[in-house]
């Protein structure tokens, strides 16, 4: 009668080991965050910031940069994403001073610099609103292989813009490191960005 019980013990041991292994993996890799080092193009752009100054990627060297495409009339995705990022920055504490969130508008027609300025200031001092000419914006969406398009306007002339939902995260030297997918948790971002900041 010892054989079945021994095999049952073995099975349970294997199961426990498996669970521990999976848990270990889950702790190391934050959910919805992917390592994209060497895959996504390094940070590069020429745009205008909310204060009307022309800026390039070089202006943000030394900081960890989170890049997100959106628009201020966005009903759900953009405010939710920016709020999650603000939450993550809050968790980082003093380290957050070395992080910049670049919010690039895909709706420059409605998002004037003044509108952008008001919008990003709601989320925190690390948030930068960026606006570009059609050519500048096109160059950028080609580089990061994302897209946006205007939906048909409704009765009141309001229209939605369909756009990417990912956040690209760049290290201090402008190299792409992480990609956060829709629905990521602020704690996941905070953990991975802290690791990035500690490495730099």
């Amino acid at each position: 009668m010892s054989t079945p019980s021994r095999s049952r013990t073995l099975a349970w041991t294997a199961f426990t080991l498996g669970v521990l292994l999976l848990a270990g993996c889950a702790r190391q890799l934050q959910p919805d965050v992917t390592d994209v080092s060497g895959l996504v193009a390094p940070l590069e752009f020429t745009l205008t910031n909310q204060s009307g100054r022309a800026v390039t990627a070089a202006d943000y060297r030394g900081d960890v940069v989170m890049l997100y495409f959106g628009y201020t009339h966005c009903p759900d995705a953009c405010p939710a994403t920016l709020a999650t990022l603000a939450d993550a920055l809050h968790m980082l504490g003093p380290l957050a001073a070395r992080v910049r969130v670049l919010f690039v508008t895909v709706d420059p027609r409605r998002d004037t610099l003044a509108v952008l300025k008001r919008y990003v200031s709601d989320f925190g001092p690390q948030f930068v609103g960026l606006r570009g000419t059609t050519a500048q914006l096109t160059a950028m969406i080609k580089r990061y292989r994302v897209s946006y398009r205007d939906e048909k306007p409704g009765k009141n002339g309001n229209y939605e813009v369909i756009h990417s939902s990912v956040v690209f995260i760049f290290g201090g030297r402008g190299r792409a490191r992480l990609l956060a997918e829709t629905g990521f948790a602020s704690a996941a971002i905070a953990t991975d960005v802290r690791r990035l900041l500690e490495r730099a």
Binding site: R149, I162, H163, S165
Partner: peptide, 12 residues
Amino acid sequence: YPIYALCGRALA
């Protein structure tokens, strides 16, 4: 292939 949803589909 969730990448198409993440980067924005070109058509509705």
